[in-house]
Write a protein that binds this DNA or RNA. Structure first.
Lengths: 156, 156
DNA sequence: TCATCACTGGTCAATATGTTCAGCCGAAGA
DNA sequence: TCTTCGGCTGAACATATTGACCAGTGATGA
C-alpha cells in the first residue's frame, strides 16, 4: 500500500506512455525486467493500479456536453435512486456526498437540448426531491493522477 | 466520429479485459486481426480512445478521502486560479461551470483532518472569493463508459 | 462499368511475454 | 558473528504477439 520511488516512476511512465511494455520500461528505468514485472504485479494486486481500460472521450462519441447534477433524495429512497440512475447510460458517475445535496451525478448529453432529455430521465423518479444542474464549460485540469503519485512516492 | 457496432464491441471488450491484445480480440469478435487493428487505429486517431493509461486508485495510494469543492472566483482572476490549482497535487480535476459556483474541483486527502490542509491550500489564493465543500461518502456508480458506448454503437 | 473501400486469411521477421534459474546483496533476527 | 530472508539482477528458454505486408473478395457509389 505504501509506494516507493520506483513504484512511482513505473506508474508515471505508464501514465505518460501506456503502450510501452514491460521490457521497454525496464530499459528506461534502468532495472531488470523481472523487477518491473514483480512491481507491476504487486501494484495491481494491491489495488493501486486498478486496470488499463481504454480512456474513452464522450465528446468524440457524440456527447460533447457534460454536466453535474446535485440531487436531493427523499429519506430512505437512496437505494432505489441509485438503481434508477445506474440504468441511465448518460450517467457516467454517481457519488453520495455530505452537504446540501445528497448525491452528485456526472452526466453527458448530445447537446444542451439533449441535456434536458437526460435530466428529465434522471429526475423522473419518485425518490428525487430536487435537482440542480451545472453545465461544464471548460476542463482546465482533466482527471489526472501523476502529481499525486509523485507526491506519494517521494513521501515514502 | 460515428461508432458502429463493431467499434462498440471492441471498446466494450477492451474495457472489460484490457490486457487482452489484438489477436485475442479478433478471435473473440470473429473478425480478422487486421480489421481489429485498423479499427483500433482509427478509434485512437479519431480521439474516441484517448489512451490506455493505468487507472490508479487514490485510496490505495493513501488518499481515501474524496471531496468536491465549489469555488467562486473574483472576476478576471480565472486564469490565475487555474494555474494555482494545477500546482496542487491533491486537485485531481478542475472544471469551470455555469450556475452558482464558477469552478468545480475534485480533491483527495489522506484523512478528514488532512482535507482541511488541502482546502486551505486550495482556497489560500487571492482570486478565490468563496468555497463550499462536499465530502464524498460512497461511489455507487464509479466512472464508467460502457453503457454509453453501447448506446452510441446501436444508434449508428 | 469501373474505382474505391473495408474486410478476409495468409505470410514473414522481429519482438515481447511468461517463466524459471542461480547468484548477489542488505537488512533483520538469533 | 552467523543465518535467513526478501528483493534485485542477468540470463535463458519456448511460446505468443506484433507490425507489416500481400492478393483476393464483396459491397458501394460515381
Amino acid at each position: 500500500m505504501a509506494i516507493d520511488r520506483l513504484d512511482g516512476r513505473i506508474i508515471v511512465l505508464l501514465a505518460r506512455e501506456p503502450r510501452i511494455g514491460v521490457l521497454e520500461m525496464s530499459r528506461r528505468l534502468g532495472v531488470a525486467r523481472g523487477t518491473v514485472q514483480a512491481r507491476l504485479d504487486r501494484l495491481q494486486s494491491n489495488g493501486v493500479i486498478r486496470g488499463f481500460g481504454p480512456q474513452v472521450d464522450p465528446a468524440a462519441l457524440g456527447y460533447p456536453v457534460t454536466a453535474f447534477a446535485t440531487l436531493q433524495i427523499r429519506q430512505g429512497q437512496g437505494a432505489d435512486v441509485r438503481a434508477h440512475l445506474a440504468t441511465v447510460p448518460e450517467v457516467l458517475e454517481l457519488l453520495t456526498t455530505t452537504g446540501s445535496g445528497d448525491m452528485l451525478c456526472r452526466l453527458v448529453a448530445r447537446s444542451n437540448a439533449d441535456l434536458q432529455r437526460v435530466i428529465d430521465r434522471v429526475v423522473g423518479f419518485d425518490g428525487i426531491v430536487r435537482a440542480s444542474t451545472a453545465i461544464v464549460m471548460e476542463n482546465p485540469v482533466p482527471l489526472r493522477i501523476i502529481p499525486l503519485v509523485e507526491q506519494a512516492a517521494v513521501g515514502e
